[in-house]
Design a protein around this nucleic acid. Structure first.
Lengths: 215, 215
DNA sequence: TAGATTGTTAATCGATTAACAATC
DNA sequence: TAGATTGTTAATCGATTAACAATC
């Protein structure tokens, strides 16, 4: 998490996929792995793997490849998975609940410390050991828990309003799962989490394969 | 959905965000909008907006900008949101259920036609009007409904096994929400849906803003 | 007509790939 | 030593940005 700073999204994505693949290799007790094997499995070029690993700061051994466990350690560090940041979830409907109960966020540097909703059927419940508070209590909970970021999973109609409340309470890092455009000042970091483009990408991949087969 | 075919992910993402923003403008009865206004709101350069719109195939009017409703129509078509593809969801735990109940997939070209699980508490239930079947029935249901793609939301341990079953049943388009590396033949289109890199990106954005403020 | 904004052509920048020398 | 694979330096490619002419 040091030398990040305008690292391209593409490297981050590839690095995450290296991680998943290497974890598999580690479980299978593979000790060293060469770039061309990683590349082959992930369907990219070996030179790209080597370039990425260079960026990440891994050193390999000629003739051997890279040490799997070393790689895993450095990747985790590079992706910031070794430091934990506190998050709250606003909106505990279906999606909010499923993120609340996703235990693995901790692996990826995130700890969910509270949920919020206004539905009386949900408020007061616990998901694991995470309390779901009424949204009106948000000020106190934020003062208490000091979360760095908020995950937004509210209905479209209230997304903007909730965002403004968050900013007012000094939560300026927002992971927005609502498919809606948020107006925020420049000091606020918003990550728009939209599933829609992935559907298009996936169907496009399918068409490409289809086309190639016909030839 | 015509001239797609190796359109970059970056354009798809930006186009989706144009869509959300323009929908807002449309609701506010804005008729024409110039590229520099879109750019300003989305924090990018006007020339990039114009280049993207050119790629998408929109024609604007000098001095006026682009007609919002026309833009929305063309973007929807470009992103393939006007044709509907059938999908099944494998694994109806928390995440699977929340995807099942996400009614808006239809807007983005996807219709969920069935869910599958092995948990007796879940099998036989309905989510909206979508049945959840036992995984053992998958062959019949696929024959019946003919889905193009499968959404994978199963536990890590069984992801590979389930994938192989799907391929065997000729479902070769897979949207994988399981943070695990899948081995598949080249004729299968997999979209790895990993949330982890977005956390890193978001925290990175935050740090960049922080750094900039200090100066 | 003058001014604003598009659309096109060219320049720049960054990311990917290639070539090859270094090293185990 | 010979061979395989890394790491480095250079070439290519694609995406972004700039400059400006076309047009309403």
């Amino acid at each position: 998490m040091d030398n990040i700073g305008r690292i391209s999204d593409r490297i981050l994505e590839r690095t995450t996929s290296y991680y998943h693949f290497l974890r598999k290799m580690s479980i299978e007790d593979v000790d060293y792995i060469p770039s061309n094997l990683i590349a082959e499995k992930l369907n990219i070029k070996p030179i790209q793997v080597r370039k990425d690993l260079e960026t990440i700061g891994v050193i390999g051994k000629p003739k051997m490849g890279y040490r799997v466990n070393n790689l895993l350690k450095i990747i985790k560090d590079f992706l910031g998975w070794n430091s934990i940041n506190k998050a709250i979830i606003i909106g505990c409907g279906n999606l909010g609940q499923s993120l609340l109960s996703y235990r693995d966020f901790k692996k990826y540097g995130l700890e969910i410390v509270a949920g919020f909703d206004i539905n009386p059927e949900v408020v007061g419940n616990k998901n694991g050991n995470i309390n779901i508070y009424h949204f009106s209590e948000i000020k106190n909970v934020i003062t208490d828990k000091e979360p760095l970021l908020a995950i937004l999973t509210v209905p479209e109609e209230v997304a903007q309003e909730v965002t403004e409340k968050l900013i007012q309470l000094n939560v300026t890092v927002i992971w927005n799962f609502v498919p809606v455009f948020l107006r925020v000042p420049k000091c606020v970091a918003v990550q728009q989490q939209d599933l829609a483009p992935f559907i298009t990408t996936l169907l496009d991949k399918y068409e490409q394969i289809h086309k190639a087969e016909k030839k």
